[in-house]
Design a protein around this nucleic acid. Structure first.
Length: 758
RNA sequence: UGGCCCGUCGUCUAAUGGCAGGACAACCGGUUUUGGUCCGGUCGGUCGGGGUUCGAAUCCCUGCGGGCCAGCCA
């Protein structure tokens, strides 16, 4: 039985937890502190929910803690009512924060840090207009130009900055800017603005401050002040990480917080952007922030979705860096799974037509279970069945299509929890079914074609049903179009029908399954006294699926892409042509050593790389071997660090290659050693001895391992012989593991082939 | 166009140089007094090209496609 090895974790391992694991192992931190940093300028939505589950979830998994921090640095857009709403939503999801903080708590501290930055010569006051600053920032392809303000003295900057704070300048007349690099390819590093003058009333600090810090300044420093270790945010902040690191490195000692970005959630058929949601509300396309069609947490809550379902949804979606769009079906499925075992089964007719009995009516009080056979819950309610009932219009057909399991002339169905009936007549007006007549048939008389639900005419209670459907017609709405044209006209359907009495009298928080219809609960937003049920989610409907208009998406193999001319381009000649004269010389020298142009040109572009190859050649090694390891093997352990940042030198590299060249170690072992040597240079021969990595020359031992491995996995041997040839790698890998990289993999491969052939 | 990031079944996501697996969707069947649930099965994928390697989804190069950045928003 395969059990989930991560069942005890809230967040399944992902690239972020891997970073955390590494940081913890490296001793960079000894605890995990995260934060959830909403700006109080709107309601939280399902996208935030995934972020919340991540922030709080990983902290819980690592016995760490999470702060709720309101990033309230822009007084013109923020409102305390959102603070309350956000707290409510986070708590509703089931998370509790260690500390509640506001960026505005830190205004005084942040001001002090800004002063220090000025004192270090890393920030200056610019007194030019917004337009001027914009124009001189340059473009993505052209560098920006400095203003005279950039060269102000520290004293002058200090004076000006204090005057900014004292309110001596008008709004927008001065800003504090970091002094970084106006030519940076990262636009955010072109002297980003840190403070602006904004004489606006802040909901928390009142009129105490005429200047406010910007996100890029306040956020990293707030993280550092709170002792946050891992600052998880969405992909659009990737470019901001550079300023984050820049500021924190200047103003704080280690351990410094670290920003990691992940992809935000996109849900099909809806929008998850505060701006767009605001538009929906303000333009009246929905009835408010908690309109059940909205993706806000307030709306999901009103719709009856439980927090456990949202958390399960977040778990199923996972965390990656891929920009992706999640289908709503994934949410629906999580909601159904969440409700299946807790929702008592009851009956409601949403589009009622009368059912009359021909002959004797059953007239009975039935004791009907609230739970189906497969839900381990107990309980029942009594149902009275009089001589007239309500049934669903869709459950009656004049001409039964193929596969019809409901009422149609002559057809026998069961009335749920009641008798079998045969349809004797269908009343039709204007092509619409308006009523049905049935006769009771004895139990013995054949199998019913199906089961339909009903509500008793005499005791049934009138109710209104709100059927919530996707808000947008298109999975990926084109938001440049007017919203009115994008909205699904059936996003909210209102029906008037009847429920059985039981459903009307239960507590407000009970989620029902109306059999064959879906999960519903009483709309908590309905006017007092009105009986309104909102549909949380439909049931999966095999019939509707079969008959619906849209063609189901057929799964068919993608056409094999035909190779394009552009697939075969060789950039090498271009690269050779654009070599500097100096690099050109190196290129020719490497060529002379027998390297092909592609390798030579890449090495020639780097003085150091080219030198290392020459050193290896001087030591009697083939240039191609050195080039191969430098170009193809080194990057694996380099992890983006330039060659110069690695601790080792060309001599260590050459000695490693020598061992390999002299056949004293295998390539696998050499790779292992490479990982150690770059950071911890030493004599590779000694390292080889220490790790016991000398190449194994003993064919007999290899054979023994091969036999052993094959004997241990008879099922896989069978599968291999059945055509699953990919298993060859598995067998070789097993033997390699046993030899700890000391066996000659090529030879092992041969032995495996031999053994499997017999 | 400069820089950064991302491309795995229809969709979402695993596999960290060694068996391409799971979920959702779809399809077929079984159980069922819900066309639900549950169970069994089927279909279906590493963006193209080249390289490194005994072995590549994974490392390297390159092409293609997508996202982000030129707010005194966050």
């Amino acid at each position: 039985m395969a059990t989930d090895p991560n069942a005890d974790r809230e967040v399944a391992p992902n690239f972020i937890t891997q970073h955390i694991d590494q940081d913890l192992k490296a001793g960079r931190f000894d605890t995990v502190v995260t934060r959830f940093p909403p700006e109080p300028n709107g309601y939280l939505h399902i996208g935030h929910a995934t972020a919340i589950c991540l922030d709080f979830g990983v902290a819980n998994d690592y016995q760490g803690e999470t702060n709720l921090r309101f990033d309230d640095t822009n007084p013109t857009t923020e409102d305390p009512r959102f603070v309350d709403a956000i707290e409510q939503d986070v708590a509703w999801l089931g998370f509790s924060w260690k500390r509640k903080r506001f960026a505005s708590d830190y205004f005084e501290t942040l001001f002090g840090l800004a002063v220090r930055l000025i004192e270090m010569g890393d920030a200056y006051v610019d007194d030019r207009s917004l337009e001027e600053i914009r124009e001189t920032r340059g473009t993505v392809t052209t560098p920006g130009v400095a203003s005279a303000a950039r060269d102000r003295s520290v004293e002058e900057n200090l004076t000006l900055f204090h005057k900014m704070r004292a309110g001596e300048f008008p709004d927008g007349s001065h800003v504090l800017r970091a002094k970084i690099d106006l030519a940076s390819p990262n636009m955010i590093m072109r002297d980003p603005v840190l403070y602006r003058i904004r004489r606006a009333h802040h909901y928390r600090t009142g009129d105490a401050w005429p200047i406010y810090p910007l996100y890029d300044f306040a956020h990293p420093l707030s993280d550092a002040l709170e002792g946050v270790t891992h600052s998880l945010c969405t992909l659009e902040f990737e470019n901001n990480r550079e300023i984050y690191d820049w500021l924190v490195a200047r103003l704080f000692d280690p351990p410094r917080p670290r920003q990691i970005e992940f992809a935000r959630l996109n849900l099909a058929h809806t929008v998850v952007s505060k701006r767009q949601l605001l538009r929906l509300v303000e333009d009246g396309h929905v009835r408010g922030w908690d309109d059940p069609r909205m993706p806000t947490l307030a709306a999901l809550r009103r719709r009856g979705i439980r927090p456990s379902a949202v958390r399960e949804f977040a778990r199923r979606v996972g965390i990656t860096k891929t920009n992706a769009s999640t289908p709503v079906e994934l949410l629906d499925s999580a909601v159904r799974d969440d409700l299946n075992e807790v929702a008592p089964r009851t009956m409601a007719v949403l589009d009622p037509i009368p059912l009359r009995f021909e002959g004797p009516a059953p007239a009975a009080t039935l004791e009907a279970s609230l739970w189906p056979h497969d839900v381990p819950m107990e309980g029942s309610r009594s149902l009275s069945m009089g001589d007239r009932l309500w049934v669903e219009r869709d459950d009656v057909a004049v001409d039964a299509p193929k596969g019809w399991k409901r009422l149609a002339p002559g057809a026998v169905v069961r009335l749920r929890h009641g008798p079998l009936v045969r349809c004797t007549d269908v009343e039709v007006r204007d092509d619409r079914v308006e009523g049905v007549t049935v006769e009771v048939v004895p139990e013995a008389e054949g199998k019913p074609q199906g089961v339909i639900h009903w509500v008793d005419h005499a005791t049934g209670i009138p109710a209104v049903f709100h059927l919530v459907n996707p808000l947008f017609q298109d999975a990926q709405p084109d938001l440049s179009q007017p919203l009115g044209e994008l909205i699904n006209p059936d996003s909210l359907q209102v029906r008037s029908g009847f429920v059985e009495p039981y459903a009307a009298v239960q507590d407000a928080d009970v989620r029902f399954q109306f059999e064959r219809q879906g999960y519903f609960w009483k709309d908590p937003g309905a006017p007092e006294g009105d009986l309104v049920f909102v549909r949380i989610v439909t049931l999966k409907d095999g019939w509707q699926k079969r008959t619906r208009q849209v063609e189901p998406v057929r799964t068919q193999p993608k056409p094999k892409k035909t190779p394009q001319a552009s697939d075969f381009v060789d950039r090498t000649p271009d690269m050779v042509a654009s070599l500097t004269p100096e690099a050109r010389k190196r290129f020719e020298a490497l060529q002379a050593e027998g390297l092909d142009d592609a390798d030579a040109v890449r090495l020639a572009g780097d003085d150091q790389l080219a030198g290392w190859v020459q050193d290896a050649v001087a030591a009697g090694l083939p240039a191609a071997l050195a080039a191969n390891w430098l170009l193809n093997e080194l990057p694996r352990v380099q992890q983006g660090r330039p060659l110069g940042e690695l601790a080792w030198d060309s001599g260590t590299f050459t000695n490693l290659l020598k061992l390999l060249h002299e056949d004293r170690v295998t390539a696998a072992a050499a790779r292992q050693m490479l990982g150690v040597l770059v950071d911890d240079p030493q004599d590779p021969a000694v390292l080889m001895q220490d790790l016991g990595l000398e190449k194994l020359g003993d064919d007999a031992a290899l054979k023994a391992w091969v036999t052993e491995v094959l004997a241990e996995h008879p099922d896989r041997v069978e599968a291999f012989k059945g055509g699953k040839t990919g298993l060859r790698g598995f067998f070789v890998g097993q033997v390699m593991q046993r030899s700890q990289g000391r066996a000659d993999a090529k030879r092992v491969g041969e032995l495996v082939d031999e053994a499997l052939a017999s």
